[in-house]
Structures are given as C-alpha cells and as structure tokens.
Nucleic acid binder design. Sequence first.
RNA 1: GCCGGGGUGGCGAAACUGGUCAGACGCGCCCGACUUAAAAUCGGGUGGCCCUCCGGGCUAUGCGGGUUCGAAUCCCGCCCCCGGCACCA
Length: 796
Amino acid sequence: MDRYDAQAIEQKWQRVWEDARAFNVANPEPGADRSRKAYVLAMLPYPSGTLHIGHVLVYTISDVLARFHARRHEYLLHPIGFDSFGLPAENDAIRKGGHPREIVEENITHITGEMKRMGWSFDWDRVIAAHEPEYYRWTQWLFLRLYEAGLAYRKPAPVKWCPKDQVVLANEQVHDGRCEYCGTEVVSKNLEQWFFKQTAYAQEMLDDLAGLDWPERIKTMQRNWIGRSEGAEVLFRIDELELDVPVFTTRPDTLFGATFFVLAPEHPLVEEIIARSPNAAELRDYAGHAAAKRGEERAAEEEKTGIFTGFHATNPVNGERIPIWVAEYVLMDYGTGAIMAVPAHDERDREFAERFDVPIRTVIDDDGVLVDSGEFTGMPADEAKRAIVDRLAEDGRGRHAISYRLRDWGFSRQRYWGSPIPIVYCEACGQVPVPDEQLPVVLPDLEDYRPRGIAPLASAEDWVRTTCPSCGGPGQREVETMDTFVDSSWYFLRYCDPHDDQAPFDKEVVDWWCPVDQYIGGVDHTTMHLIYARFFMKALNDLGIVGFREPFQGFFPNGWIQLGGSKMSKSKGNVIGPDELISRYGADALRLYTLFMGPADGDMEWADEGVEGMARFVRRLYRLVTEVAEQSSRGDAPANDLSHKAHETIARVTDDLGRRKSFNTAIAAVMELLNDLSRAGSADPAARFAAETAVSLIQPYAPHVAEELWERLGHSRLWEEEWPSPDEAQLRRATFELVVQVNGRVRDRLEVGADLSEDELVARAKASPRVQAHIDGAEVRQTIVVPGKLVNLVVG
RNA sequence: GCCGGGGUGGCGAAACUGGUCAGACGCGCCCGACUUAAAAUCGGGUGGCCCUCCGGGCUAUGCGGGUUCGAAUCCCGCCCCCGGCACCA
C-alpha cells in the first residue's frame, strides 16, 4: 500500500476541480425554483498582508457549509472578493512603501493562491475587488440614489478624529474611545461631514431582528447599539430668551420633582445665554473647557462640575421656575442636549444637587405612588407616566417620544484610498451630484497619498478642478473619499451579477439569490458592517432597487483562534499563516483541525499537537479505506452493527451540519465510525459501505483526501454526489440496552428486544439478580418506564 | 449599573426536548508490540477516593439550597469569567 501524500493528492484534486469548473455556478433561468438555492457567504477579507489562521477558520466554515449545501441543492452561490479600499489596505501600502493599488493587487494575488491551496470552493468567476473602477462605479451610483432620496447628506458636526490615522471615524469605529484600526485615542473635532441617515431605520432595524436566524447574543449587541428608550419630550419655557426648550426624559412621572435644569456645554443656547449674561467670561470658560474634553474624560470625572447661568426655566406641569445650569455630565449627542434634573430619583442629578446645594424633592414614595405631584398625587408611577404626558400634550407642552442611541453614519474620510464621492461644488449651484453617465469618478493616481489631516485628493488640482454638471461653470470635486464600509454594504449583491456594466446588478437575479442564507464572519462587525448593510438593504428596498429588506437571513459568528492565551495579531507577533501549515500537515488536516478544536463560534487556543492529531486521523482514514478498497468485496451491505453505525453517523453528521452547525461533533462522529470500521476489519460485510460513508461524510471538511479515496472505491466526482440519507429501518435496532435503575441509581443494563412492551420490560428488570439484590425484598412502590431507554424501580 | 453568554478530567471538549453507571471524540500521559535504538505506526489503559481488586463501593459537572422516581440540564440564592452598552437623562 502506498503512503498518504497530502501535497500530491491536494494538488491533483485542486487541478481537477478547476478543470471541471466544479465550483462555478451560472445564474438561474428566469422562474427557477428558489427553494433550490443556497447563498453561503463569508465576510470578504481586507487584502492587507497575507492570510492568517483566523481567516482559515472563517473560510473553512463557509466552505464546509457550501460543500454540504452543494450536495443537497441544485444552485449554490459561494463567492469571494476583496475589501481592497480603505484604511487597512492603505496602511499596509504605507508600511511597505508603494502605491496602494500595487500593494493591494500583489496581496490579492498572494491571498488568492493561499485560498486555492486551502481547497476552498469559491466561484472565482465572480471575484470582485472594491478598488476596481468597475466596482466603485456602482458604489458611487448607489450613493447618488441615496443622496437623491435625502438619505446621504452633508452637515457640520462634532466627529471622532484619529490623530494617528489622520481621519474621521464613524461612531461604530471607535471602541473604548480608541481607533478601530490603530488603537490611538480619538479626539473630537468639528467638521463638515457626509452622513447616511441610518437613524431613519432605527426602529425597523430593531423590529426586524426578530425574523433573523442570528444568535441571541448578536441580536442583543445590536439592540444595545441602537439603544431605544421610551419616554417623553417636554417643553420648558425660558422667559428671558422667549424660547421653548425641549428635553427628553424616560421618567415623565417625576416631572414634579424637577428642581433644576441642565444644558450640555455644547448646547447652542449656551452661546445665547453667554451673550446676555453678566458673568459671560466665567460661563464661556467653563463651557469651552468642558466641550473640548472627550466623552471618556467627562465620564471619568470624580465629581460633578457645572455652573449656574442666572437664567431660569419654567416647569410646564406646575409653572415653577427652576435654575438653569450648564454641566458637562449632560451630553449634546443624546436626547436633546438638555435635561430636567430630578435629584430625588436620578443618581447623577442627586450627586450634582448635593454638590451644589440644589433642593431635592421626593415625588414618588417607596410603594411607587406619586406624592406632592398636584392632581397626579396618589397615582401609581407607571400610570402617571402616561397620564402626565397626555396632559402635557393637550397643552402642547409635551409628547410621547422615543430616543435612540444610534447615530447617523459618518462615512466621509480624509484619506486617499477610497472611492471618490461623486459630488461637485459650484459657486452658483452649490452641491451638485455627478450625473450617472459620468461615473465612475476615477480616483486619480497620487505620488504622495499619505494622510496629512486634510484630504490628500485636494492636492490633485487638475482633478479637483472640473465643470459644474448643472450650469457648466467652474466647479470643484469633493476631495474626501468614502469609508470602505460603504463598499462592503452592498458587495454581496454584486456577486450575483458581477460583470454587469449597465447597472450595479440585475434586480431579478439579485432578488433570486438574496438574501444571503448563511453569512459567516467575526463578531467584531456586529455593530459596524452588520448595521450598515442592514441599513443599506432597507434604503435600497424603499428606492425599489432590491426586493427585500434584510441582507443576511442566517448569521454564524466565528470565534477567535488564540495563541498563548491572546488574540492573534500582527503587532503581538503571534500570527500563524496557512502556507507553512499546509506544507507540513496538508490543507485537509488543517481544515479539520480548525473545526475540531472546539465549537466554531467560541474562542479557541491553537495547539500544534492538535493539528498533528488531525494529520494522524487523515492518514488513518487513508490507510483503512484503501485497505477496504483493495480487499473487501462489493455488493449490498447487510444490516449488521457496522452498517447500523454508518447510518447513525449519516443522521448525526447531517443534523450537525444542517440544523446545529456543530462542526466539531460531526468530525467526532466520523471518527467513531472509523474506529468501528477498524475494529470490525475489512472482512466485515459492511466494511465497504462504512468506508464509503465515512469518505462521503468527511468530504466537506477534507475534500481532497475524500475525493482521492472515493476514486479508489471505484467512483468519481464525489463533489457532485448527492448527500447520503440514513435508512430509517437501519436506524432502528432489533435490541437495545435497557438501563435498570433502583431509586434512580443504575444497577444493571440488559440487552432486550426493541419490541417488548412496557410490562415485559418491567418484568425483565425485576428478574435481574443484581436488581433483586438492591430491592432486597422491599415493596416496589412506583415504576417508571422510558420506552427504548430505561426502567426505574422505586422501592421502600 | 443594565443586557447577553458561560463555569464539566491534566488540556480542547461531548452529553441536542430532565432519562443508558457524566466525560463521546481528540490531545497529553502511561503500558505493550514493531525497531539495535529512536521517530512513525499499531494495540491497550487513563475523573477522584476506597475495598475483601477477573469484582465491587463511594464520590464527582463553580458554591449552597430546592423541585423530581431521576438534575450538568429546571427553580431560588451566592461566587467567578467573557462579551455588549453605559454620566444615554
């Protein structure tokens, strides 16, 4: 018998698949049955550098599911592409020195090779890259549709700025006050920026989570991020300014306890108050300093700070005039930037009131009933919430309101490597969209593209200078570029129709394939990409561009592979790449190991011995199956223990891959079958069937060796072979092991016929000498029978 | 603080709706075979404690209680870990 040679086998089958176009799928004929499609997708990689073991996990998951579905469906879409615009790619280019396009394209070539060596079954005819004009032309086109609909707009706003990357970041790209890409602490800047109006869909994004097959923890993360609070908006009158100022509160039932009023330092009214205030200098000093601080600094303040303005606001429920303060604990970007303060029933207000000696008035007693609250006194708090707002609404002083934590998505970037925003500024016409027929607005080549605080494209004067599409006069192009999350908000649509040069895609084709049935990717994108793409689909659906409102029906978050207890990252230098592992153990063993380590949605610790174990399993499979292929005779397998085991394994693996997405236990099931085959030996009449079953079931994980062994077993093209189904008759056994318990403790196990009645089972149980010893003549008070499993005798 | 997930051998883990002595499968370790030897490979063993040791007993799923004929699984209280949100009004 020959020795297992991973390299030779893997190269051989990769060539066969490519020649046979095994993984290329044509778009369906119009009217094709949608129940026969599966769209399996893993998040596309940033082509910055090479693949690491984390990528191996994600794409192996998607490949196992894709290969499994391919053998159960007529149409399977399993594409791949590159998120080649944006900071990760550009930073890699800066590090290596060279133009981002060259670096990115080198990386793509390299990564493509690695992906093919892993044996992943991508449809390479559909590959896309965000930086190619054929792609970003349509990103720009989609931007224009959103712009026309008022869903993309430009406004001055305080934004998060990363001083190292010299770029604006979306709220979603700031974690713990640090830059998503480089970890530098961000600062706040006031800038004119482009936004997508994703807040318009906040409620719907919340509601539609219910219909998605996503893990609960992912839904929770999105719910937290969207952050809905129910309450009321209440108008407070400021007589000195002749103005009504709205506040948001979740506790309208405590309105009678409001003893002061607070404006955020950035609140626009603060300027007006300063203008009319005798202590203007002091106020300006406080507000200026507070507003300049980062949110985290403000939150970290040991003691509450604030300053009295000298102005007063009138509480609409009782006409009381309460002092207006400016305090940094009130934030401009939540609610209305102004609050009514109820120190008796809010911890923060209480802290402030105690520090500055403001009165504290209790308006709800320990039983949750209103006190000292005018006509509402005696009413339970939850009832009063509604009643007070209803009453205010009658007077036009308030209304029920809902506030969200979600902000609009700031998507313009002061960097070079991204899609230009197709807008021209004209002195006469203002902001003018570039007409569709002039797309794409091509990103010009720049000698020095490095970040410098202002958009590098501003230095491409010839490119910036243009004519206004509206009046033909002189115009200037928008010099900021789009966040690469814009590119990735619709890429899965382009895969459906990747070569269309008339439109971003054919609507009918996209509506046939989409939504993505099974999406796979990192949890870290839960409050970024997964929010953005959902917003995009809802907006595009409202514009009639797509026929559905959710992009990803199923989502499987892959875990992280750690090395030495910490998450792999380039900066820690604990990155393992696939190439070396492939040449040492083979792609099949590597694929098996990444999924066998543990549940694929949890974190895992990498261990070299583990891959060796998998390599051992592959060799064992190869040896045993080859032996069977050479020695055992063909023909129908009889029903015996080994064939039963094979059918059970089919049922288990099918359920593990289909319903449970439990990749590690499916491998364990095949190992068990192989162990049984080894024990039974190749002379067992069911040996050939068991060997074929093992090979067929392991194929999604270890496609190369499976294909090779399938051929040795006298067949061809396992990838086209229909996924096996268990024979129901063989899943039922003639006998089973009856567990006999006395008082819930197992005392004996008996091999009994599966057709015995409950009474007969009890009789058998009682007859057992071991059981008798434990009953010891006592009376059996109760008998519990679980058919097919156990008998429990309760005595004494 | 609020929300979500979790805690099982030396290690990664299994046990899916409460039901076959909990620990499948693998790693590691131990013993044996092959070998001059080692590696590789193959076979066997492997939660803990104990006994009268070809057998058997007790104990064991973070801790304490409860429900049940029966609990890793359900309920109550506590401890710890991970993740999200957080001066969010």
